[in-house]
């Protein structure tokens, strides 16, 4: 009774590894296919369409994308927008999260509720007014407009995330510093700031990833080739040259690189990031 039979156990064992392989294949196969088409030479594209790996490999698609298209410029634009958004958002969110974590103040509940609500409602609702406002101040087709819009969109989430990092630092450390002779701001700078560096890094990573992926607002606000971000550029490319499969996928693989980089960077904080704002309040 107490001991499961050898067969039951090995059956469970096999079942577990079968399940693990299923998840692994499901997660990686699409990315693998992206890479596979990207390294398949044009002439083999159709004849070996469903083979798991082409009989010949090439990096020609990558070199065309990098050397002969505007993707490098798109990549640069996306980098500017994402890094700019990430930096500005993190600074502002750190201040907000600090206030949420350390102060009890008039209107706190209302402000927290307001931020939670902005998390719940679809931002697409305001795409038309935002277009008109941006147009009226003459910022259409500018990266600045994207940075401003993305920063505002990401502040609520990033603030809750930063708050969770500040909450993890005991208040007594600040109090000890204040007794030791610091002003509140000096305590923030000398004690809290160094301790929250990992949190700042994680927030930076989350916001970067979000900004790097954003498509619809960029599509609406950017129509000039010079200021297109990577998603917009890729989508335009797809609708214009829908047969250059290899190049599109090579561009896709390139777009994946920064995301993967930041993903590995923020992996440790995923739980905190995904639950910030969702479970609080």
């Amino acid at each position: 009774m107490m001991h499961q039979s050898f067969f039951t156990r090995s059956f469970l064992h096999i079942g577990k590894y079968a399940a693990l392989s299923f998840y692994l294949v499901f997660a990686l196969f699409p990315l693998f296919w992206l890479l596979k088409i990207a390294v398949t030479p044009d002439q083999l594209m159709f004849s070996e369409g469903t083979r798991l790996w082409p009989s010949l490999m090439t990096i020609e698609n990558f070199s065309i994308v990098v050397l002969q298209t505007d993707f490098v410029a798109y990549f640069g634009n996306s980098l500017i927008v994402s890094l700019g958004t990430a930096l500005v958002t993190t600074v502002i969110a750190a201040a907000t999260g600090y206030a949420f974590s350390r102060f009890d103040f008039g209107g706190k509940r209302i402000i927290v509720a307001l931020m939670l609500i902005t998390q719940m409602f679809p931002l697409l609702m305001i795409i038309a007014p935002i277009y008109k406002i941006i147009a009226s101040v003459g910022l259409l087709n500018s990266l600045t407009s994207l940075i401003i819009v993305y920063t505002a969109f990401n502040i609520p989430f990033a603030s809750f995330l930063m708050q969770s990092f500040f909450d993890a630092i005991p208040r007594e450390l600040e109090e000890a510093a204040m007794v030791d002779g610091c002003t509140r701001f000096a305590a923030l700078r000398k004690i809290i700031f160094p301790l929250t560096l990992p949190g700042l890094g994680a927030t930076l990573g989350f916001v970067f990833t979000a900004a790097w992926s954003e498509l619809l607002f960029a599509l609406m606000l950017i129509s000039k080739n010079e200021t297109m971000t990577f998603p917009v550029g890729l989508l335009t490319f797809v609708s214009k040259f829908s047969v250059d499969w290899g190049q599109m996928m090579a561009a896709g693989v390139l777009a994946l690189i920064p995301s993967c980089f930041f993903f590995i960077f923020i992996q440790r904080y995923l739980v905190q990031g995904l639950t910030a704002g969702a479970v609080k309040g």
Binding site: M178, V179, D180, L195
Partner: peptide, 29 residues
């Protein structure tokens, strides 16, 4: 404010600054 009262305090949780070594903790003030 606390910084100008010239009073030292030992906290229940000790509140040692985790990123500073013992000497710097002691000399922080």
């Amino acid at each position: 404010p606390p910084r100008d009262r010239d009073i030292a305090m030992v906290f229940q949780s000790y509140a040692l600054y985790p990123h500073m070594d013992v000497a710097r903790n002691m000399g922080f003030s």
